[in-house]
Simulated assay, not measured.
Amino acid sequence: MDQIKIRDLEVFCNHGVFQEENVLGQKFLVSATLFTNTRKAGLEDELSESIHYGEVSHVITDFMKQHTFKLIETVAEQLARKLLLETRHLEKIQLEIKKPWAPVGLPLDYVSVEITRGWHEAYIALGSNMGDKRAFLDHAVEALGEVEGCQVVRVSEYIETEPYGGVEQDTFLNGALKLRTLLPPEELLQLLQQIEAQAGRERIVRWGPRTLDLDILFYDDAVISTELLTVPHVELQLRSFVLQPLMQLCPYKRHPLLGKTVEELWNALG
């Protein structure tokens, strides 16, 4: 991805743990690498197809002057979020906040915090087999779309499927959606569980009936295996009620472990 760089933008503002830092203020240096696609702007010589680094520099300056935080970690996190939410064409940002006058009582050039944040692509499975199934799925889609830093890009059709796992219960209504999000995988999982809880989800019987079931199927091309989360979703390739909605959303998405596309997995399932 192409990069636009802003280096050592000087801002005098009031961030720091000590009260005198908040009152008297001090100098900060901000560097930002903006990841975007400059191809169209370069071919058409059109600024609206790129990122206006002058406007971004003013946003950085205004944000840092208008807020006061104890930690430069917080400055970096909140500033990166603001720029990603409000800057057209910005896909990822690498941000460094330098503090040349850090009160440590020792000679140094500066201390700094550097972070990288960006938009991610996730695919979420939707399922319900209790109560008003369609209403539960619609609510989940709406709830995700209302979260700052989450954008529902596309939703599959809902399909009726037989229960999975051998537990006797009502048929399911299943679907999937494509999500653009700033949330890392663990925070996205927490959000999905919160939405499930709002729908009255209870985890009593494995593969048992549920008002709402939300699962992360893919997160970019990440492979995650922790105590709380496994991505790509376990047995995704064996579940027609997962693959069929994905066929509508991303037939050419490649499973990062199996090396096969969703379409190939669907055909192999027969």
Rank of each mutant, 00 (worst) to 15 (best):
E46T: 10
E202H: 09
E86W: 00
F35E: 09
D132G: 01
G127A: 09
H89G: 10
M130P: 00
T226V: 05
L177I: 10
F12W: 09
E187M: 08
Q198D: 06
E148Q: 09
R210E: 04
K5I: 11
D213H: 03
L265C: 08
G25N: 02
V147C: 02
K5W: 02
A41C: 06
L84V: 02
L34H: 01
T226D: 02
G165S: 01
H67K: 09
L182T: 03
L71G: 01
R210L: 07
T61A: 08
N129D: 11
I124M: 08
N14P: 01
K99G: 10
R39P: 00
E168N: 06
G131M: 08
D45V: 01
V30T: 08
Y158A: 11
L144S: 07
K5Q: 09
H89W: 14
A32F: 10
I204V: 15
H58Y: 01
F218L: 05
R134V: 09
L217R: 02
G42Y: 05
Q94R: 13
A268L: 14
A222Q: 14
G127C: 11
E91Y: 13
L95N: 04
H233L: 13
E91L: 14
P232T: 02
L108S: 09
D215W: 03
Y158S: 12
K260Y: 12
L188F: 10
E264L: 08
K253S: 10
E263D: 15
H139T: 11
L85F: 07
F136A: 15
L257R: 14
P100M: 13
E114R: 14
I124T: 04
V152N: 00
E162R: 12
S112P: 06
L243W: 07
L137F: 13
E91R: 15
M247C: 05
L246K: 09
R254A: 15
L137T: 04
N14K: 15
Q19G: 06
F136I: 00
H139I: 03
G105Y: 07
V111T: 13
V111I: 15
P251R: 07
A122L: 05
G259Y: 12
L269Q: 12
Q194I: 07
L126V: 13
T211Y: 10
E10I: 13
V205T: 15
E49R: 15
S112Y: 02
I72C: 01
P256Q: 04
V75K: 05
G208F: 01
V113C: 14
Q26F: 06
W266V: 12
L214P: 05
Q26G: 14
I6Q: 09
V113Q: 08
F69Q: 11
T211S: 13
L90F: 07
L43T: 04
A197K: 15
E142D: 13
D62S: 06
I195M: 03
V30P: 02
V56L: 01
I124Q: 05
L192H: 10
N174F: 08
P209K: 08
Q190A: 15
L189C: 09
G165Q: 00
L189D: 11
E142Q: 15
F12C: 12
H15D: 03
L228D: 09
S31Q: 06
T38E: 09
E168I: 06
Q244G: 02
V113R: 01
L90H: 07
L191S: 12
V234S: 06
K65E: 14
H139Q: 13
H52P: 00
P107T: 10
G127K: 03
R88L: 14
D109P: 10
V147S: 00
E46V: 02
V113S: 07
P107G: 06
R254G: 11
